[in-house]
């Protein structure tokens, strides 16, 4: 796995080798593909889950954290090639971008709507990703 998150949540740039700090030979696209296929849930975001740098990224982190979904965060601000590469990969122009089991799910609006409609629960169920159904219901009750 290319993404390296320390216990403090600080993330190294996706494409740098954590030992040598060298940029590996994989292209940005290959790195993205590797990351989304080796992690069940990946959020490409501005900043880290510990310190989001944009309100929309922060919102999605909040949803995932609240419902107890384990996810890998990738800070696109740490690598311009990943920042552009992820937009090409999904053919989607904005960040954040959520991937579940390698599939692009959507950005902030879509995640919010899917949370409220219950579609996010259904997707996580289908994908075998663990989360708290009670917490998801609480979000709906609080915002419905």
């Amino acid at each position: 796995m290319m993404v390296n998150v320390t216990s403090s949540g600080t993330q190294r740039p996706l494409r740098r080798n954590s030992q040598t700090d060298e940029i590996p030979t994989m292209s940005a696209e290959e790195q993205i593909k590797d990351t989304v296929t080796t992690n069940d849930v990946v959020l490409f975001m501005k900043g880290t889950k510990a310190m989001p740098q944009c309100g929309f990224s922060n919102h999605v982190v909040g949803v995932l954290t609240t419902i107890g979904v384990e996810f890998q965060d990738v800070d696109v601000l740490a690598d311009p090639e990943i920042r552009q590469g992820i937009k090409n990969y999904s053919d989607w122009p904005t960040i954040p971008q959520l991937y579940v089991k390698g599939e692009f799910v959507g950005g902030c609006d879509i995640i919010s709507e899917m949370t409220m409609s219950g579609e996010l629960d259904a997707l996580l169920d289908k994908s075998g990703v663990s989360y708290s159904k009670e917490a998801a219901k609480k979000i709906r009750d609080a915002n419905g």
Partner: peptide
């Protein structure tokens, strides 16, 4: 699907979302 709808809107708007406009929420 939601994703298809958003893609249609974004495609129609060309370089506006993400470039000329920082944030575009779509319903």
């Amino acid at each position: 699907s939601r994703l298809q709808r958003h893609r249609k809107v974004i495609a129609a708007l060309g370089d506006i979302p993400g470039q000329r406009v920082h944030a575009l929420a779509i319903k």
